[in-house]
């Protein structure tokens, strides 16, 4: 049962991920991306990682994608006004995409030996996850938070700069 669900979700995830790339309308792309996120949410649930699953939905589907849609609707791109990329650019994009795939495959190679053996594990539950994060993985956790803080400060800086240049007083 779980296996069939896994295959179904994987199929749907890959299909909608492809549709993100292939659909002409940017708003449709974003909607397909939201479907992809929901499939990944299902995968997290299958792995018994409830906390990660719901945070994934809240952060990605609930906030980031809403902002994406917001920007796209504000621009209101349609097929005439959409900038068309030339062939050289497409070629370069394909090559860099393939390179990224090579990197991902290389990084994920050999992870099957590290697979979590215990299937009834409760590590994904929020209490256990919090304990593990603040004891065994404290340093990576703190570094990640500093990274996020830096990104936040950077975003504020960029936002400030552009508002200064666009409204000369």
């Amino acid at each position: 049962m779980t296996l069939y669900l896994f295959y179904f979700l994987s199929f749907l995830a890959i299909l909608s991920a492809l549709m993100v790339v292939f659909s002409k309308n940017p708003v449709h792309s974003v909607l397909y991306l939201i479907i992809t996120f929901f499939c990944i949410f299902g995968h997290y649930l299958l792995m018994n990682a409830q906390f990660v699953a719901f945070v994934h939905i809240i952060v990605y589907a609930g906030a980031i994608m809403v902002l994406f849609l917001y920007v796209l609707m504000l621009l209101n791109l349609n097929s005439e006004s959409e900038p068309h990329k030339n062939n050289t650019l497409k070629f370069v994009a394909v090559i860099s995409g393939c390179l990224l795939m090579v990197v991902l495959v290389a990084a994920l190679r050999g992870t099957d030996t590290m697979m979590l053996q215990d299937n009834g594990s409760k590590i994904g539950y929020v209490r256990n996850l919090g304990k593990v994060m603040l004891t065994d993985f404290l340093l990576p956790f703190e570094i990640t938070s500093i990274l996020l803080l830096a990104a936040m400060v950077g975003a504020v800086m960029i936002g400030k700069k552009s508002s200064k240049t666009t409204t000369p007083q």
């Binding site: 939201i34 609930g62 809403v66 849609l69 609707m73």
Partner: peptide, 25 residues
């Protein structure tokens, strides 16, 4: 009664905006 009840409610609320956004668009 799942372990992360509030997060579920919060997630559902945050998805709710899509109804308005998709309809409006």
């Amino acid at each position: 009664d799942i372990d992360i009840g509030i997060l579920y409610v919060f997630g559902v609320v945050s998805i709710g905006v899509y109804g308005i956004m998709i309809g409006g668009w």
